[in-house]
């Protein structure tokens, strides 16, 4: 598979070769692929979603059997030993976490990192107020809250995510803009509408059907949009 430019850019100035890595929130395996391509000694790709775990194995498993370990687990109890990982990546993870899980997961990522470990956190800045995609994201959050009381998406300004990790002893080494603007293509918007459909299916039809219809309408109305930025923060764990 092609490694996205976002991942390549985030890793370009990091030591990856020969490193034991944790990809926290492996999703579809983009960052996992980037780490392997950059010569990681081993990548633990952790996701709590069985479909994602299968997707990662399928997309990047080939030829990497000895270097890739896909783990289906909750990052709040990351199944790795304390001080065992050289390099942690969280590429697009934080925006999908319920805000209450952010600090427990930051604590876990810190625990598994070696004392001289490194960390990269990539995420989206809060989209501009006039961005049309906000309407779809808001609908997604409404659907998620109706189903399980938590938002589907939360966007943090980079300074906030930096502060979360600094509180756990990390030092910011650099900040970089990965995308400016962020290209929300039709395919991305469809994927977000699919999330709404997933929640809608768990609601009574009287609630689910209008949610789905609104999501479809929004995707049609927005089409695609370039807006906002995606950023990358690189940290090192201060010694001692």
């Amino acid at each position: 598979m092609d490694v996205p430019e976002t991942v390549t850019a985030a890793l370009a100035d990091r030591q990856v070769e020969g490193q034991v890595c944790l990809e926290a929130g492996a999703g579809v395996g983009n960052a996992t692929a980037g780490l392997l391509a950059a010569g990681a000694e081993r990548v633990y790709a952790v996701t709590d979603d069985a479909d994602h775990a299968a997707t990662v194995r399928e997309r990047v498993g080939d030829g990497n059997a000895d270097r890739l370990v896909v783990l289906e687990a909750d990052l709040r109890a990351t199944p790795l030993a304390t001080d065992s990982v050289d390099f942690v990546t969280a590429h697009g993870l934080c925006n999908v976490l319920p805000p209450a899980d952010l600090t427990p997961i930051a604590a876990e990522l810190t625990r598994v990192a070696k004392p001289d470990g490194h960390l990269v956190v990539d995420d989206y800045a809060v989209p501009p107020a006039d961005a049309a995609v906000n309407r779809l994201f808001a609908l997604e959050n409404t659907a998620a809250r109706m189903v399980d009381g938590r938002p589907a998406l939360t966007f943090y300004p980079p300074a906030m995510l930096a502060a979360v990790f600094v509180d756990y002893g990390w030092t910011v080494e650099r900040k970089k803009t990965l995308l400016d603007p962020v290209p929300w293509t039709e395919a991305h918007l469809d994927a977000h509408a699919e999330v709404v459909r997933g929640y809608a299916a768990r609601l009574p039809d009287s609630l689910g059907e209008p949610l789905t219809a609104m999501a479809d309408d929004l995707v049609a109305a927005i089409g695609s949009e370039r807006t906002g930025t995606m950023y990358s923060l690189a940290f090192r764990l201060a010694d001692g």
Partner: peptide
Amino acid sequence: RHNDSPVPEQLHH
């Protein structure tokens, strides 16, 4: 890349 039929469909970049 994403306009060129992404497999799998992705929420993120």
